[in-house]
Design a protein around this nucleic acid. Structure first.
Lengths: 349, 349
DNA sequence: CCGCTTTGAGAAAACCTTTTCCCAAATGGT
DNA sequence: ACCATTTGGGAAAAGGTTTTCTCAAAGCGG
């Protein structure tokens, strides 16, 4: 049987305060504070004695008291509406990583697509005196269900539609698409098709536009992009459209897909038709969703949006805003990265 | 050109304080505080006047000052080492959802598998005086790279290995496996195979154990589970082992898979062999990872671990611990749920 | 030995809210 | 009219830290 003392509420003795350190070192709290912060003037010996005492007692300053005084809480809010998505998690981790080293902690605020929840979270943030807010979403071209426009604290938008005049960071989708198409060209592919998601997504147009641009810049014909859903199923169907017509010579020798799921569907459908990847047809996806990209056969070459970096940049941008550094408003696009696996073939020797 | 005044640091006027409300209403701060909190005694008219003033001025109490006084910060820390995983996100959202309604905010702490990062985050939490910590992971049978055992604040473990004597919440893997196998039995399947992940995972044994139990309870032979990787590739290979031998009558008529990726591999491999799902063979997965389960053909019946609920329960458990309610230490298992799609067939009429 | 500057350290205000205690006025009972 | 109680509201301390101001002692030039 465990004694009462042991099973009692976890709360042991309260944390040691600066006052106690000061008393133990035989100085005033003012002196103790200055000693620990490297401020004020005192003998090196006094300073060291206080520091040693603090160390011995395990003193850690109460962040709440500090925040109250400094008007700086060293916390920021992270708003997201992407609960299950694979986009927000790396992004969130990036923000958190960039900030933890600076002593800044991140409040996680999942607002779904619920106005009420958004309001609730934003008010909680403001009450807790966050120094700033990072707003992220699952779509670059949609707003979160909250109004952050008159907030008195800085806001940075990452991977979501920013308010006018605000700072926004997004991936450079057009640049990413260029990487893919240019890779195909470098590999000697010439009849490059594009299969993407619904026309209602801005990224679909950004990527399709770049696809067209690269091809025309190189004097090649750009087929009309095939738009559908973000699903494997649509990848299958698109293959039927592209490779259905008789006459092998009309077939594409490369397919640039709007995301990895479509690419997966395309590759599976091609295999079912006996068309081999990458020998007959090269395939490149988008998102570099590793768990999908690595499970396709062959493993999928894809465009990575560098979401963790995007998150880090967003965190740092917010921090400099908090520090009062003016930042140019507008949308900043961060480059994507080509991750080569085996679905697009090797360069001609 | 935007004027300097407009592009100046976002920080407008500071938030309105209780003192200002009191002054505007012509009372003392003490009275104002009591009016807003429903404490103390005063005329209904005074109370209402103060409330109205506060409303008009947009007063919101400074949470930092409240926390300092009440010794309760209304924040908790959420530790995770699952940055890219699909497990932690629903779990985290569940924790956050359960707590936001109670005015409690959640610090997101991504510790990867890095001791230093863990230490850093835990110290930041303690400095910020979190009321408690929820520790989550990507594996039920592994510890986070941090020591939370002597922390002076309550800790709840969710989907990760708890410290001895602590409160832990995990999914009931054995129960989930029972659901799957019993569903097969209900559908008239009798030769049920089990393909799962690496033997180094505790859940593999929990699920395999339940698989065996259900079959022997029903007087049926339990084949030795096939253990491999958590991948589609292993699903493929397992089908080769199960259906490679000649003699159709030795083949299973159902495969219970340790996760959805294996199940996906199994289904694809069966289709390639011309074995139809669910007519010839039923398949059930585990995790109910919707994006995979819905993309398989046919869509995959799977076991859902109810991670959002698990997160909610963890949040509430932590809260009651924070409130001083003693909780029975030990591991509590929360039930799984069978999500029926089309890969396991319909019940015999 | 005297006035001036430097040095070392403490007192107190400030941050914002809550809560306890206190006091004056009003009310009620006789 | 007097005492006891209730009512309405304020003063002040508390919570933990930082920072400004103050002040005594010591050092120093003449």
């Amino acid at each position: 049987m465990v004694s009462d003392a042991e099973s009692a509420p976890v709360s042991a003795k309260p944390p040691v305060t600066l006052r106690e350190v000061a008393a133990a070192a035989g100085v005033s709290v003012a002196t103790a504070s200055k000693a620990l912060n490297g401020q004020g003037r005192m003998t090196a010996e006094t300073r060291e004695r206080i520091r040693e005492t603090a160390r011995r007692l395990g003193f850690r300053p109460n962040s709440l008291a500090q925040s109250l005084l400094r008007k700086r809480s060293f916390t920021v809010g992270l708003l997201t509406n992407d609960t299950y998505g694979r986009f927000s998690l790396p992004l969130m981790a990036g923000v958190s990583d960039a900030l933890v080293d600076k002593g800044v902690s991140v409040f996680l605020c999942n607002v779904e697509d619920d106005q009420r929840l958004g309001q609730l979270h934003v008010e909680a943030m403001l009450d807790k005196r966050v120094d700033g807010i990072v707003a992220t979403g699952k779509r670059i071209d949609r707003h979160l269900p909250v109004d952050l426009s008159n907030l008195r604290i800085p806001v940075v938008y990452a991977f979501t539609q920013p308010d006018p005049g605000a700072v926004g960071l997004v991936s450079d989708d057009a640049g990413g698409a260029r990487l893919a198409v240019e890779q195909f060209l470098r590999l000697g592919r010439r009849r490059i098709a594009h299969v993407s998601g619904p026309a209602s997504f801005a990224v679909v147009h950004a990527r399709a536009g770049a696809y067209r641009d690269v091809l025309t810049e190189n004097g090649l014909p750009a087929a009309e992009p095939l738009l559908g859903a973000w699903s494997e199923g649509w990848g299958h169907d698109a293959v039927a459209k592209l490779f259905g017509k008789a006459g092998r010579e009309g077939w594409p020798d490369a397919v640039f897909c709007g995301n990895d799921q479509i690419a997966r569907g395309v590759i599976d459908a091609l295999r079912e038709r006996g068309i081999s990847v990458p020998e007959d047809v090269g395939v490149i996806g988008f998102d570099n969703w590793e768990i999908v990209a690595e499970a396709t056969r062959p493993p999928l070459t894809s465009i990575d949006m560098n979401l963790a970096s995007l998150g880090r940049e967003a965190g740092l941008a917010l921090l400099s805003l908090v520090d009062g550094q003016p930042a140019a408003p507008g949308i900043r696009k961060l480059p994507c990265r080509l991750v080569v696996r085996q679905s697009c073939g090797s360069p001609p020797q």
